[in-house]
């Protein structure tokens, strides 16, 4: 039994889940709601990456044949695509979240408004660039080999890269949350918005910051997944939305390290499902989620449940 191979497979898939859930968790920590447009923002990031490395739009859609006049290398395109996705996330916050917050409406409504924003984004993508799949050329990584051996297992270079970047982003995010003024402000708002406001922290600005960050992370993750497995049409990110929910709860709603840990655990749990039972793979992650909810609802690294939720 190649234990190592299974570990490698699980971790690399888990890294994507974790990156995805990070965005969910940032928004949840400050607002206590789930942003159902997150999957669409992830998708937007993947398309931005494709365009920025010089990809051209296919024959369908209003922008048929469009290509940017320049082509960036992948390490330049990814952060820029992240910024683009962050702008889209800010827009989502502006139209789907802020009006509700201003009216102090039931947070439940944000589930529906963000779903609406997601539906608009996905269908807008299709209207503009069509439904076909796009791929970031395998050559984008330069001269690196497609895969390399590691103690008897084989690792796809893209997946190792994904894992590395995911861990790097989480480390940077944690340092920033703990060490910077804004990071601490964000945490204070997550802890208790009203007290934070009394301490002079602009909670609206912090909410915007959380959305921007979550959009950036989603955009980069989208680009990386696009590099790893191609962009499978406008619905590409939606599948992660559901898996991300499982990861989010498993790690603990609102917990940054929890999201990553949850991602890796779900990835590993799926990898350990015997191949003959692969049809039951999804049931494993959701069964796991179900059990965690019943036994330890706050998740692995979550704070004790607030009574108001």
């Amino acid at each position: 039994m190649d234990l190592l191979q299974i570990l490698v497979n699980g971790l690399s898939v888990g890294a994507v889940y974790g990156l995805f859930a990070l965005g969910y968790t940032l928004v949840f920590s400050v607002l206590g709601v789930i942003n159902f447009a997150h999957g669409a923002v992830f998708t937007v990031g993947a398309y931005f990456t494709y365009l920025l490395i010089g990809g051209a739009v296919g024959a369908n859609g209003l922008l048929a044949g469009l290509a940017l006049p320049f082509a960036l290398p992948i390490w330049g395109a990814l952060p820029l695509a992240g910024l683009g996705a962050a702008l889209v996330a800010l827009l989502v916050e502006r139209v789907a979240f802020r009006p509700l917050r201003r009216r102090r409406a039931d947070p439940l409504l944000a589930l529906i408004t963000s779903l609406g924003a997601g539906v608009i984004l996905v269908n807008l993508i299709q209207l503009l660039v069509g439904a076909e799949s796009y791929a970031i050329p395998t050559g984008a990584l330069g001269g690196l080999p497609a895969s390399f051996p590691l103690l008897g297992a084989r690792v796809r270079t893209v997946q190792a890269l994904l894992l590395g970047i995911a861990l790097l982003l989480v480390a940077m995010l944690t340092l920033w949350l703990e060490g910077s003024r804004n990071g601490k402000g964000l945490q204070a708002v997550a802890e208790d918005a009203e007290t934070a406001q009394l301490l002079g922290i602009d909670s609206t600005a912090m909410v915007r910051l959380a959305f921007g960050l979550s959009g950036f992370l989603a955009g980069v993750a989208g680009g990386l997944v696009g590099l790893s497995v191609s962009i499978a049409g406008p619905y590409f990110g939606i599948g992660y939305g559901l898996k991300g929910l499982a990861v989010l709860v498993l790690g603990g709603l609102g917990s940054v390290p929890g999201a990553v840990l949850g991602g890796l655990i779900v990835g590993l749990a799926e990898a350990f499902v015997p191949a003959d039972w692969s049809g039951w793979k999804d049931a494993v992650s959701y069964g796991f989620l179900f059990l965690v909810l019943l036994l330890r609802p706050r998740g692995l690294l979550g704070r004790p449940l607030p009574t108001k939720v």
């Binding site: 709601v33 049809g279 039951w280 999804d282 049931a283 989620l289 449940l305």
Partner: peptide, 25 residues
């Protein structure tokens, strides 16, 4: 039903998915 709010929502979503996988398999 001991769960509340969004936790209950997510647990029931998980239930729907488990039933879907069952129905498929």
């Amino acid at each position: 039903l001991r769960l509340r709010g969004i936790y209950l929502a997510i647990a029931t979503i998980a239930l729907v998915e488990i039933l879907r996988v069952l129905n498929l398999n």
